[in-house]
Nucleic acid binder design. Structure first.
Lengths: 155, 155
DNA sequence: TACTGGATATACAGATTGTCCACTAATTCA
DNA sequence: TGAATTAGTGGACAATCTGTATATCCAGTA
């Protein structure tokens, strides 16, 4: 159900130096290559590791503005669910339903503040969205990281 | 400043099938291996690709509860910045300063709702945090994805 | 026209991967 | 207690991939 210290060390090492490969990883950790491979296979099978895709920085793509948009929803019968429509907007990076009153919270990006207005307009146009309220992320002193959690879980 | 269609296709392919490697990737796209390698190097150099680390699912680690915590800050001179202290809490996956009034928005995870209380208490104990307000993510109909944006950016 | 950047084709040695196997140690269970 | 199961180790193999370098070609540009 959880991970042990070796799992945590493997993930930790691969996170900080993803290009080293399984063999080098096993060398660094002083275990057999088969062990590392088996561990990684198991972590993937258990869903702990969901992928190895390249991490993309939206800002480097020109989407320098990040905002969190809270939606107030009025569910309309016979319509495409709000989430499905939000998923069609590339700038909506993720969307959650949240406690409160059937509302949603979305993370969106945009090229600039004017572009953000465009994105918000797209969201407002979604069937069932009553109104939105946005906060813009000015700075990100702690950007998404999972390593401390992995180490805490594996300690 | 932006990416072209080939870049987008490379990233797209590597995101959906990260294990295929550069060579297989070049075969699938019908371009030379050197081209793919050069593109990836350039994307990494430009900061578009920030890494290739394994993607970890906190829920599979036992942290099934996600919440967004908004902090009201009172900056205290002579103290460790709030963000630095938040960074010490493994359950704080990311933290942003946001528009509004010098507040912050954090994404946190916890093992369950009771555990969330513990994490929130940790946050409240941070010097300079005046109060917090949390919303719990009940469901995530759109989980973090970057591919649509990459495709949109790549024409 | 000459230059530059990007793409292609090709080549090579070295390293890595995917899979086997056999053996050991620890744990579980009948 | 003995058998079965699971995880780790060390070794081995062929097949493949990577890193790197070469020379050529093409298009846009000074």
């Amino acid at each position: 159900m959880t991970i042990d210290q070796l799992d945590a060390r493997i993930v930790s090492l691969l996170t900080t130096e993803p290009r080293i490969g399984v063999l080098e990883c096993s060398r660094r950790l002083g275990v057999a290559r088969g062990t590392v491979q088996a561990r990684l296979d198991r972590l993937a099978a258990r869903g702990v590791i969901t992928g190895y895709g390249p991490d993309i920085d939206p800002a480097a793509l020109g989407f320098g503005v990040t905002a969190f948009v809270t939606l107030q929803i009025r569910q309309v019968a016979g319509h495409v669910p709000v989430a499905d429509q939000l998923a069609l907007i590339p700038e909506v990076l993720e969307a959650h339903t949240i406690t409160g009153s059937g509302d949603m919270l979305c993370r969106v990006v945009a090229r600039d503040n004017a572009d953000l207005q465009r994105v918000i307009d797209l969201i407002v146009d979604v069937q069932g969205v009553v109104r939105t309220s946005s906060v813009i992320a000015l700075d990100t002193p702690v950007s998404y990281r999972i390593l401390p959690l992995v180490r805490a879980a594996g300690g």
